[in-house]
Simulated scan of single mutants.
Amino acid sequence: MTRWAPEETDTMAAIAAEAIAQVGTNRTVIGVDGQSGTDLERVAAALVAGFEQHGVQAMAAAAPSASADELRSGVVAPFRSTGEGPGVLVVHGHGLLDQGVRGLWRWSLWVEREEGRLERRADVKIAASAVLDVTDPEHPRREWNDAC
């Protein structure tokens, strides 16, 4: 029996709505990190499309490194100084939820897949605002990383 699963566009629109409700859209910077081998560029682009479904201007950028100083001066500060009002920047790259870097993001997303799940990094998952399972990239699932 085949289980129904939401399409990528629906899942990412729901995640964008969650971020909008939690942190707003006024020059908001979001970090997307994940397990090795996950397609963070695809997730970031889908999240940008999710924001656009809600009428929010958004764009994605690849992190030049996982250095907090480089990210702050080369990505975050220029985006925040380019204007006022609504706008979201989705920065993607590995190491963006590491200690010392995670404080740059108003909201963050950890991306993982079933393969290698036993090796997942609990420290960054706990730091993430949301967790996304992309085992099936066409039907990603929002995971609830709670202690219930």
Rank of each mutant, 00 (worst) to 15 (best):
T2N: 14
A5H: 15
A5V: 05
E8Y: 06
T11G: 11
A13D: 09
A13F: 11
A14Y: 09
A17N: 11
A19Y: 11
T25L: 07
N26V: 06
R27F: 11
T28A: 10
T28S: 09
G31D: 02
G31E: 02
D33W: 02
G34H: 07
Q35R: 13
S36G: 15
G37T: 08
T38V: 15
T38Y: 13
T38M: 08
D39G: 09
E41M: 14
E41H: 15
R42F: 10
A45V: 12
A46K: 06
L47C: 10
G50M: 02
Q53G: 00
H54N: 00
V56K: 01
V56Q: 03
Q57V: 04
Q57K: 09
A58N: 04
M59G: 06
A61F: 06
A63G: 10
A63P: 10
P64H: 00
S67N: 07
A68S: 11
D69N: 06
L71I: 01
S73I: 00
G74S: 02
V75S: 04
P78R: 11
P78W: 10
R80N: 07
S81G: 14
E84Y: 12
G85P: 07
G93R: 01
H94A: 13
D98G: 03
D98Y: 00
D98W: 00
Q99F: 13
Q99E: 15
V101W: 03
R102P: 00
S108G: 13
L109H: 05
L109R: 04
W110I: 00
R113A: 14
R113C: 08
R113T: 02
R117F: 10
R117K: 09
E119F: 11
R120V: 04
R121T: 06
S129P: 08
V131E: 05
V134D: 02
T135K: 12
H139Y: 06
R141E: 15
R142T: 05
N145S: 12
N145E: 14
N145I: 04
A147E: 12
A147P: 02
